[in-house]
Design a protein around this nucleic acid. Structure first.
Lengths: 242, 242
DNA sequence: TAAATAGTGTCTCTTAGACAATATTAT
DNA sequence: ATAATATTGTCTAAGAGACACTATTTA
């Protein structure tokens, strides 16, 4: 190491000018899914400004210089839609040169799931006049390349349900096994055998019985389940590594 | 849509000033693996400038405003190390606020594999005085958070070999099944049963026999295999979606 | 008792893993 | 012949998928 520089490897001369390169803008965008009305739904906001004025878009915005990417994602989601307490993971970074007509924009997309009970408290924010849920089966025209981001997020969700037992992230705190099966069937787009589904889900150990039942229907009540704390911790640990 | 704006949704007023937000710097970094000398090796470059002067780092650099992220990754790899023709996929985006002491830097990390035959033509570039291969088993101290990026890339590689048959991406164009098994054993860190390994790999259909044998050893020569074109296309298709 | 959904068990087939002997080549 | 690596098959256990009937509740 050069003796002119302090021994701290992170030393930077005070004369350093960080402005010597062209810099792109960096945004985070969050694809938030919920299961409502027996459908897979996604939260979109309506753009008030050009470009794509009036088009619907994935909530997101520019990062701030002092927050991590994940913090940015949670902040934007809160500001634009009022939603908090979501399951969040990084999805993919989109950075084609022409994806935003204003200037070069790199977008770090996040993938988020919210329980049906949390999904109620949705409101529009400042940047977005409106925020509302859309069924994945009938989406409006989307701004920028957001349809591509959304399709990729949908694929990630399918993958997640196919290979993990985390479908309960889209349900309220307690739920019946039939309700959970309905989530899997809608997301995966296929019918599942009830006995095989129950055997498989229960064998993972992520669920536990409660003492309660889903009452009020003109037929036999179904037992309510909840997920074990260990289930989420395990998944968080799997992703925490990077 | 407002009648003041042209009907093109991508319309941007000519008075738009893109400089009104603070912007982070954006870099791409490429973790390039190869299998050399019966070891998993990674290509690193030595930093000529502060911070972390003299430390080894993953090759990478600032993106240019007119190229895609993937193009940036390939360009940086070529400039700093002379390597071309690699298998490339996006790994993860690292963006903690303090990861670079100079200024806020978002780094989009890529994961790359190169065949042992391609891996020879390594040279240092302008930004990096030296470029050389390091065994993953004995790494030098790394600049920034590059050890974390590297560990994550290593995990991705293990995952890839565990769940796909793409280990041949680390080998030259033709190879014996024993050589391929050695790659899997080193990367996964465990011994594999020869019969089970061959059965499993051959059942995927990604390999085909050639007429040639590995000659010159004082024992029975081993048949050489190559991967089928369909194998790579399938994997590319799986990743092309986003 | 009729209607509606909840809840349960077995068989089969496929796949993954443990395991050892023979084949071929150069020296 | 010896040394060295290449090549091949079977058994078993576990998991995945196909498949139908009984149980419980309300109206």
């Amino acid at each position: 190491m050069n003796s002119d520089t302090p021994s701290d490897p992170r030393y930077v001369p005070s004369t350093y000018d960080p402005g010597s390169f062209d810099r792109p803008s960096v945004t985070v965008d969050v694809v938030l899914f919920a299961f409502r009305d027996q459908q897979l739904q996604v939260l979109l906001v309506r753009r008030r400004n050009w470009p794509y004025q009036g088009y619907w878009a994935i909530p997101g915005g520019f990062i701030q210089m002092d927050e991590s990417l994940e913090q940015s994602a949670l902040r934007e989601l809160q500001e634009e839609t009022g939603v908090e307490d979501v399951y969040l993971e990084q999805l993919y970074t989109f950075g084609e040169a022409e994806r935003d007509p204003r200037t070069r924009v790199i977008s770090i997309a996040y993938f988020a799931l919210v329980g049906a009970d949390q999904a109620l408290q949705v409101r529009g924010g400042d940047d977005a006049a409106e925020a509302r849920w859309w069924s994945m089966a009938s989406l409006p025209p989307l701004a920028f390349d957001h349809d591509r981001i959304l399709r990729y997020a949908h694929q990630r969700l399918r993958w997640k349900l196919e290979y993990t037992a985390l479908g309960f992230l889209l349900l309220p705190e307690t739920f019946t096994l039939s309700e959970l099966q309905a989530v899997y069937q809608v997301v995966l787009g296929e019918q599942l055998d009830k006995r095989n589904f129950r055997r498989k889900i229960l064998s993972t150990g992520v669920l536990e019985e409660t003492d309660a039942y889903r009452e009020g229907s003109p037929h036999r009540p179904a037992r309510l389940y909840r997920f074990t704390a260990a289930a989420i911790e395990l998944e968080q640990a799997r992703r925490r590594f990077p």
